[in-house]
Structures are given as C-alpha cells and as structure tokens.
C-alpha cells in the first residue's frame, strides 16, 4: 500500500522532507512506523504522535490508505 506521510516540526529535522509517499507491506500503523524507523535512524529518539486522516491513532490501528502525519509535542498558544 502507498501511504502519504507528512512530517512536522522537529520531525522534519530528521526526515529533511515535509511529505513523501511510503510503500508499506502490512496493514497497521506499526508496519508503517517500522518502515520509517529503518529509513530514518534518528526517528526512534523522537517523541511523536501519529494521526491518520487527521485523527490520532495508536500503533495497533489499521492503515486505511489515507494521509498519515507524524506530530511532535504540541506547542500552541
């Protein structure tokens, strides 16, 4: 499955891109994170939440093919 992944804040300092398409074998968020961790070796040190289709999800959530975002700690206000 091809997934569009967006990166924000300090995560961009690890990926050096704000958005890309990732090919995932497997059907859960954890499978995608596995691919990203092998692509970016600094990613595991970063604190982030994951949104799918703009809703926060867990590693056990199924991938539905919609946009994923890696969100570092919030700092609004």
């Amino acid at each position: 499955m091809h997934i569009t992944v967006k990166y924000f804040g300090q995560i961009v300092e690890v990926t050096n891109t704000q958005e890309e398409t990732i090919e995932v074998v497997g059907s859960h968020i954890s499978d995608l994170v596995g691919v990203l961790n092998s692509k970016y070796d600094q990613l595991e040190k970063k604190d982030f939440q994951i949104a799918q289709n703009q809703e926060l999800v867990s590693l056990e959530t199924e991938l539905i093919g919609l946009e994923i975002a890696l969100l570092p700690p919030f700092a609004g206000g």
């Binding site: 924000f8 804040g9 949104a51 700092a75």
Partner: peptide
C-alpha cells in the same frame, strides 16, 4: 478553551534564540 487548545491542537513552535540557534517548545 485555552487548556484544550494547548493540549489538543497540532501547532509546533521553534524557539529561536538571539544567536539564531533554536530549540523546540513543548506545552
């Protein structure tokens, strides 16, 4: 409202120092 904004809204803040180095703000 303010507490909900701080906790739930995906906004990110890069704190830039006077010498142009930076760190990331966390609520």
């Amino acid at each position: 409202i303010v507490e909900a904004i701080k906790a739930d809204v995906p906004v990110f803040g890069k704190e830039i120092f006077e010498d142009t180095s930076h760190q990331w703000k966390v609520n």
